[in-house]
Design a protein around this nucleic acid. Structure first.
Lengths: 337, 337
DNA sequence: TTGTACGCGTTATCAT
DNA sequence: ATGATAACGCGTACAA
């Protein structure tokens, strides 16, 4: 059977298309009787209003786009889950895009989205090192945009982040209190604002507790798992750190693998803590101490903020920043037993 | 600045809208010269063709929908990643929906998608226990649909699955060879086809190796983490299994927690193996033996199949079934050391 | 090669 | 309360 549209419905009921259309909106004048007839017939024929036609007509899509650096990532999956819940409850659909950390992809996604396909965008950015001004140079008014987790500091738009500086400070302090004196900081991209903030917390904690900061203990890692493990093994052998603070989850995993390989015992020889929202951190060998970010909440909050912008554009301050708190979870990997 | 559309471009260039439109398609007759002028101006004004208008006109959306039971799940995230890659390469966008295992949501998503919003659907199903015939009763022709992982056996449409029966058989056999005689099977939903297949592999392996099958050792779990842990603790105490085979990843985690709580040592007191595509299974305490499913490949293959259907509807047999192989990874949780 | 005119399905405005 | 009509932006058949 072919598509049922308003026209077919109208024919079937010997009404005009406008009357039929009215049956689906709330305000319009239409007799209760005909409305019921129409809805009944619509149900019977399984009528689905064509979204594209509505969108074209109404200039809105009831769709939001989510752009993240990667999909196969526990953290972003949780965030997307949070977003999906809110969107779904509002009757919105979500388009998902992964940049795989390629800035050009991000630019391309964003540009293309400015064609009416989405009403708003929630993004965790990929290209700190690049020129973000493309966001201000879109030919038409920029779509409502909310950053979460990874943000551009020079772009004015609402954002939802976590208290990274404090968390880093606490994590570093925790390592120090557990007796560490040579604490390696594993960075993935020093130039990212998130990288900078987290590193600053580390640096300031060292200073506060009078541990000399050593540039060499900042280890810049890559996006490649194997490479990182090799690199870390070498670094651990050369630098002999007694503590490791990883700025992202997967570097904690790489640290574990590296330590296994070169027979360093966690936590005896080296203590490890890292940013991570992995639920099964307690199941690792040894249980991993983490700074656990409220990933799902981050997504939820970002989505709620975006909807606020869509509903009351003027009531949302473009400067607004929501900071959610991460939790320091001490586990065996930093214990002194 | 307001939206740039074909009309504005045409005005700016003193051409007709049709000429401008032609510049963006390949076949049409248009002088190389004007085409270049148009494209240049389009770039300058940052023109983005309105997707909804094109879709309405062309009756296709260059969008595929992905429906999964849950998003915050390592396995489905990987699958979505695989799908996203393929789609992105083809210039397609993906809409993502999570049913949270509610069948009504699945039905609702599917029905609504039949309004032109998506050209095809990739789904891992949620409602084995229900009546799937809604898929055949859509008023218009059903959208191209590919199942992956969790499928409805009574619906005729292409599918991509893994060799679950063989894997289950092998895993059970492995436990037996490691000396287990009371092997518990942790099911999450016995009625799901995937549950049935996996359970059958377990049952047949027992039979083959002359281990008596005991109904009581089939433990039906819920979707609630805490509940499962409690339930498992009790079951382990009551039934004293010496091996556990979990049909889904999270039940392996629950098993670990349960064993920790009641001081059962894995693998000494009880050996554990489970379906899982967790990359860090080797980092668990103890390293978890797994049946590792090629999750990302599953998504990739499903997407490729869907695109084949979109491009050459007649060349794809609706009965086609692709079976990808999982890998048995023996690790410490089933060792005899 | 370029322009004119129409229709995709919907909704809002205006008329009845 | 209902119907006729125009418009959203684009793409194509047809005319020039």
């Amino acid at each position: 059977m072919d598509n049922v549209n308003i026209k077919k419905l109208a024919e079937a009921l010997r009404l005009s298309t406008s009357t039929v259309s009215r049956a689906f909106r709330d305000n319009s004048d239409i007799s209760k009787d005909t409305k019921e007839r129409i809805l009944a017939m619509a149900k019977q024929l399984n009528y689905q209003p064509n979204h594209y036609a509505s969108n074209l007509r109404e200039q809105k899509s009831k769709t939001i786009a989510v752009i993240v650096p990667e999909l196969a990532n526990n953290y972003f999956s949780l965030a997307i889950q949070g977003i999906e819940r809110v969107a779904s409850a509002k009757g919105y659909h979500i388009l998902v895009y992964a940049t795989n950390d390629q800035f050009e992809k991000e630019v391309s996604f964003i540009k293309h989205l400015h064609n009416g396909r989405a009403d708003g965008i929630i993004m965790s950015v990929s290209g700190e090192a690049n020129d973000h001004n493309y966001l201000n140079q879109l030919s038409k008014k920029r779509l409502p945009l909310v950053f979460f987790d990874r943000v551009y500091e020079d772009i004015v738009t609402p954002r939802v982040i976590t208290n990274d500086y404090d968390s880093s400070f606490s994590a570093t302090k925790h390592l120090i209190q557990q007796g560490c004196e040579r604490i390696a900081y594993l960075a993935v991209n020093k130039t990212l604002s998130i990288g900078k903030t987290r590193m600053q917390g580390y640096i300031d904690a060292l200073k506060k507790y009078k541990i000399p900061f050593k540039e060499e203990l900042i280890i810049d890692c890559t996006n490649n798992y194997k490479e990182n493990i090799d690199l870390l093994k070498q670094a651990f052998i050369d630098l002999k750190p007694d503590g490791v603070f990883t700025s992202v989850e997967r570097l904690a995993f790489a640290t574990y693998y590296a330590c296994y390989d070169i027979n360093l015992s966690i936590p005896k020889d080296i203590k490890v803590i890292g940013f991570s929202s992995l639920e099964i951190a307690p199941l690792l060998n040894p249980a991993l101490s983490t700074i656990t970010q409220p990933a799902s909440d981050l997504g939820k909050t970002a989505a709620e903020m975006l909807f606020k912008m869509l509903e009351n554009p003027n009531e949302v301050n473009p400067d607004s920043e929501v900071i959610l708190k991460s939790k320091l979870m001490q586990r065996e990997s930093t214990s002194n037993a």
